Computed example of a mutant assay.
Amino acid sequence: MQVTIFGFQHRKSMQIGTRFTYNFELKEHLKKLEDIHWSKTHSCFYLAATPLNFEKLVVHLQQIEKDLVLDLPSLNDFLDNMKGYSNLHIVNFRHYLKGKRYSQSTIKTYLSFTADFLMFHTGKMTFSRSDVERFMESEIAGNKRSISTHRQAISALKLYFEFSDQAEFDLSTLHRPKKSKYVPTVLSKEEVLDLLRLTRNLKHRCVIALIYSSGLRIGELVSLELRDIDIDRKQILVRQSKGRKDRYVMLAESILPLLYNYLQTYEPKRYFAEGFNGNRYSTSAIRTFLKDSCERAKIRKHVTPHTLRHSFATHMLENGTDLRYIQELLGHSKPETTMIYTHVAQKDVVKIQSPLDASIKKLLEQADNGNTNLRLSRNILG
């Protein structure tokens, strides 16, 4: 009987797996080995990949049957091969992505998914569609990652297979799950004012005000340089944002006194919001003080910096701004992306009358004719 010993990535660690044609005696013998586990996903018994466990596994297998054939390299060789295999492919894939002029953020994300996939299928040189599905089931869906993350992982692997030509299947059959459609959380105009009033720190208040009044992404805010704020023209230049696009956004006149006060007090040198030693301000710091301000303002909604951007777009739409201009201000490449705000804007919805309101209005008209028994707190019919 032949038993194959191989390495693979499982539960974010390297493991030593065993695979063989089903044999009850061998199965029961393996279960007696200390610290061995069964992986339903990979259909194999496995141990943590350490030199000691490798030796223990080999000795244990050799105890059951003298003519057992073990298909294995040395542990060190097989770990070195795996490391070299993964690194070589990842390095080449990185060069490929850079050549395609993908952003640093996209490159980092795609390399991370690809490295996880290669570690999950350690030692394999070609991949089937079921290999991809097993990875998604175990590492993405199994770890309860979001649909958005799942879609990114599929995109990364499709691009990797196009580059490496290691897929044994038609890439057009590899589909992303449907995108989740959520209505964005939006603050009311009163809640925004409360949030600003109850943010005590001057710098924090200025950051919140600028994100909301200009509809900035948090990454755009921390990358914003002082040279790109044009006070005379009431404009801000957002450089090379999402999709490698420059765009202008508005600088609200009402924010100018706050802006002057902040600039004179903190005296930033390069970036609008600077952290330690003049470096970019931390996005995590912004999320932290925003959460603190929401608690002080007694806002129960789940608020993130992007909520302020959603609120900017929704309030602009409610104020009568054309959707095309909002699309330009937000930097959306597709009008469909901006259309989501039509689902939360009250501009047209408030004109629609509820059937209950219509019924009550009719009853009130009847009250003028002597029918006064109209309160909802008791039986209207008497």
Rank of each mutant, 00 (worst) to 15 (best):
H95I: 13
N81D: 10
L97W: 01
R94G: 03
L97K: 02
L111K: 05
M125S: 15
S103A: 12
K108S: 13
M125K: 15
Y102E: 10
F113Y: 15
T106Q: 01
S105W: 04
K98I: 12
I90Y: 00
F78G: 04
F93M: 11
H121W: 15
S112D: 07
K100C: 02
N92T: 13
K83H: 06
K100A: 11
I107A: 04
L118F: 03
T106G: 05
M125R: 15
A115S: 13
L118T: 03
Y96H: 13
N87A: 14
N81A: 12
K98R: 14
M125F: 09
L111G: 03
F78H: 11
L88A: 13
L111D: 00
F78W: 09
R94C: 06
T114M: 03
K124P: 00
K83C: 04
S105E: 12
T114R: 00
S103N: 04
Q104T: 15
D77Q: 13
L97C: 05
L111P: 01
R94W: 05
Y110M: 11
G99P: 00
F120I: 12
S103P: 05
K83Y: 01
T109H: 03
D77A: 10
F78P: 04
K83T: 11
N87T: 13
T126A: 09
S105L: 14
L88T: 15
M82Q: 06
T109A: 12
G84W: 03
M82S: 04
D77V: 12
Y102H: 13
R94D: 07
L97A: 01
Y85C: 02
L88N: 10
F78Q: 12
L75S: 03
D77K: 12
S112M: 08
L97Q: 01
S86Y: 02
T122E: 13
L118A: 02
H121F: 09
N81L: 13
H121I: 14
Y96Q: 11
T106R: 01
H121Q: 14
L111A: 06
Q104V: 14
L75Q: 01
F113H: 13
G84F: 03
K100Q: 12
A115G: 10
T114F: 00
M119N: 10
Q104C: 08
Y102W: 07
F117P: 00
I90P: 00
T109K: 04
K124R: 15
R101E: 15
F113C: 09
Y110F: 08
H95W: 05
M125G: 08
K83M: 08
H95P: 03
S86R: 07
N87Y: 08
L75M: 08
F78E: 10
G123C: 13
D116T: 11
K108H: 08
S112V: 06
F93S: 00
D80V: 15
S86L: 06
G84P: 02
K124N: 14
G123N: 08
F113E: 11
L79P: 01
Y85Q: 11
L111C: 09
T106A: 03
H89Q: 14
S112A: 11
N92G: 11
Q104P: 04
A115Y: 00
L75E: 04
S103H: 06
F78V: 15
L75W: 03
Y96V: 09
H95K: 15
L75D: 00
F93E: 03
L88E: 12
F120W: 06
K98Y: 05
L75A: 00
N76C: 03
